[in-house]
Structure formats: structure tokens, C-alpha cells
Design a protein around this nucleic acid. Structure first.
Length: 151
DNA sequence: TGAATTATTCGTCATTTAGA
DNA sequence: TCTAAATGACGAATAATTCA
């Protein structure tokens, strides 16, 4: 069953601030993102030229970061909701293990997406700061020109 | 340098949500 | 209504940092 993606990471604009400056140990992100209300980064701004050459989203969009042997588990059928009151029969034990494995994977993926989302936001902040700086300088120059004309 | 403290990561459970 | 996926919350384990 495919669920519509609640976490929309939409940094399709050419943010070029790259992920390079993300600290090795990233901050813990407990409770910073509301549930299922879309985490969307909609980039409308036009890029004004920064240094990098690859967007954070491009860098992070692969699911290859999952450990080998754990990724690509068959998403078949199993009770994935937390029924901790299952009888400890063999079948139920297998069901539980499958559920735990799937949830483990889901948690990893969820965290990966959240990190990606935060990176996108950080890139967006950097981009906007850059644009702001440029616009301020432009305004200053125009004011200068105007002042000289008036004088 | 080693103990104490702080930060980060990971697995699990509980809950929410969307689709069948 | 049931099921599977997504995700927040929590605790344990581990890594990094601080300080005497």
C-alpha cells in the first residue's frame, strides 16, 4: 500500500549552497517537524549565484544510504501496527519480527528524509540571505545614483 | 588521562493517516 | 473498518566534549 508522501522535499530550484558545511554531527531533530502536515520547501526564488554545484536534495535523494542487507526488504504483508498483545506463537513471533524490521527501516527512512528536509531549509536560508545582501547593495547603489543626480 | 556531562544515533512503541 | 506506512516520543547505547 502506497501512502501519499507527507514529507515533500521540493528543492528543485538550483540551490547551490551544497551540504558541505553541515557539521559532522548533526543536531538532533526531536519534535521539530509537525506530523503529516506537509514539510514542503517550495523554492520560488531565482538563484543569484553561489558557490556549489549540486543541490542538497540531489545529493540526499538516493535511498542508498541504508545499510546493506537491510535495505530493500520485501514490503509484503504483515501486521505493522503495534500489537504488543500478540500471543507468542511461532507465526506471531515471525509477524512481530517482520513488523519490527519494517518499522526499523521506516524509522531510518523517516530520519533520512527529515535530515534532507532540514538541509534544504538551511540551503534556502543561505540562498535568501545571499539574495537579501545583493538587493541591499543594489538599493544602496541606486540611492547613490539618485543622490548624485539631485545634487 | 579518566570521570562526568552533553550530543547524537538507533530501535521500539504508540499514534495518526490514507487507501482498500 | 482494517491494514500498512509514516512519524513523534522515549530510552538505551555510543561518541564527543569538558574539566579537574
Amino acid at each position: 500500500m502506497v501512502m501519499s508522501m507527507p514529507l515533500i522535499v521540493n528543492c528543485t530550484h538550483s540551490l547551490a549552497v551544497g551540504c558541505g558545511n553541515i557539521s559532522v554531527r548533526e543536531k538532533t531533530l526531536k519534535g521539530t517537524v509537525g506530523s503529516r502536515s506537509s514539510m514542503a520547501v517550495t523554492g520560488d526564488e531565482t538563484e543569484t549565484g553561489t558557490s556549489g554545484d549540486m543541490t542538497a536534495c540531489q545529493l540526499c535523494n538516493t535511498s542508498s544510504s541504508l545499510p546493506q542487507g537491510v535495505a530493500n526488504t520485501s514490503m509484503g504483508s504483515a501486521g505493522a501496527s503495534a500489537h504488543s498483545d500478540l500471543k507468542p506463537g511461532k507465526g506471531n513471533l515471525q509477524k512481530r519480527e517482520l513488523r519490527l524490521m519494517k518499522n526499523r527501516e521506516a524509522a531510518r527512512e523517516c530520519r533520512r528524509k527529515k535530515k534532507e528536509y532540514v538541509k534544504c531549509l538551511e540551503n534556502r536560508v543561505a540562498l535568501l540571505e545571499n539574495q537579501n545582501k545583493t538587493l541591499i547593495e543594489e538599493l544602496r547603489a541606486l540611492k547613490d545614483i539618485y543622490r548624485h543626480k539631485v545634487e
